[in-house]
Design a protein around this nucleic acid. Structure first.
Lengths: 186, 186
DNA sequence: AAAATATAGTTAGGAACTTAATTATTTACC
DNA sequence: GGTAAATAATTAAGTTCCTAACTATATTTT
């Protein structure tokens, strides 16, 4: 190729242009449009996606998805007792059907095992295996270091402030007055 | 059942207990464990999930997923010109294969249409239809109001501060020195 | 101009999720 | 004590994402 003056823009630039235009257009058209609100929510989504993708990539090198990892962490805490599947769902905030699938895949890899509870034969208890413990022990030092590095540009006050603001935002969603709720039917 | 003193705990309490225990255990076991960092990242994930689920529920009432909605918004900005599919992928930060699927589903609903670019016959351009425009116009006022309400407990300074802290965190992930990168193979 | 390379889109297969329906077991009620 | 209701897990079907392989078209190289 010859010597060109092509600017070679990154995808990020396209996104910036797109959002700048959107502000102008939508702001004029819709009186409800409030750029500072839209901006902070876009920022939240973007930041979450970037960090989640980063952590997922690191865990993926050990053959674990983020959910599988979190499930293993829960079982690791409970040790030999294990944890009923329904309780795993509550801790991970996912459906019971999804827990079934996650435990299936971890069981196939030999990282957890299922046992039936003696007292209530409806419930299955998932227990981490020795292999599961070993895997966790091998990846946790790097994982925790990673988390720490991700936050290292924020000082203590900033971390606290970010936590407070996130909590405030979350509460606003969860406990807003007009929360449509589950809309239970009669 | 008789009159009991059972506290009737919500799932949230289980989560709090779980995380409190985890801090103690992991903090002792792993010197790399840094609770303030772990806490702020958990908070980020939790807050994102809550807000995303809230918005997804609202858009779902109109038959749209968040991604479908964003795709429609992109096309709405471009109007009659439409947008090449590869560019949609760059704006939405998703794979081209996923764009194909999203456009498929919106095309089935009659909200967008595909046309082949005359100049480069490799590229397909997606264009929003009249029905798509109408749908957007019907839901945007409520959507923007929703975004605004979600952020209403944060004042102007807090929104700015939250935005800055999120950006700082994101930059730390994206531009950290030891970013393993795509690891291109020779 | 032909061959190699790059780009746009689709297809195929798979993982992580969802809700709704089904099965097994326990608890509550009369 | 037997039936009804609740609870735990699974299955089935569908959605949203992914990567890798494939097809068609354009561009570059020689």
């Amino acid at each position: 190729m010859g010597v060109t003056t092509k600017p070679k823009q990154t995808p990020t630039d396209k996104r910036e242009i797109y959002y700048r235009d959107r502000v102008r257009q939508q702001g004029q058209r819709y009186p409800q449009f409030h750029w500072p609100s839209v901006q902070v929510l876009l920022n939240l989504a973007y930041t979450y996606n970037v960090t989640a993708a980063h952590l997922a990539r690191a865990l993926g090198k050990h053959g674990l998805s983020p959910s599988s990892f979190n499930l293993l962490m829960i079982l690791s805490r409970n040790g030999g007792e294990g944890c009923p599947l329904y309780e795993i769902g509550e801790l991970l905030l996912v459906s019971r059907a999804n827990v079934t699938g996650l435990v299936d895949s971890l069981e196939r890899k030999g990282l957890v095992e299922r046992v039936t509870d003696k007292r209530d034969r409806r419930v299955r208890v998932a227990r981490i295996t020795k292999a599961g413990e070993t895997l966790l022990e091998s990846l946790l030092p790097e994982h925790y270091l990673d988390l720490r590095k991700i936050c290292s540009r924020l000082n203590t006050a900033e971390k606290a402030s970010l936590g407070d603001l996130l909590t405030k935002l979350r509460n606003s969603v969860q406990f807003s007055p007009d929360n449509k709720g589950p809309g239970k039917k009669p």
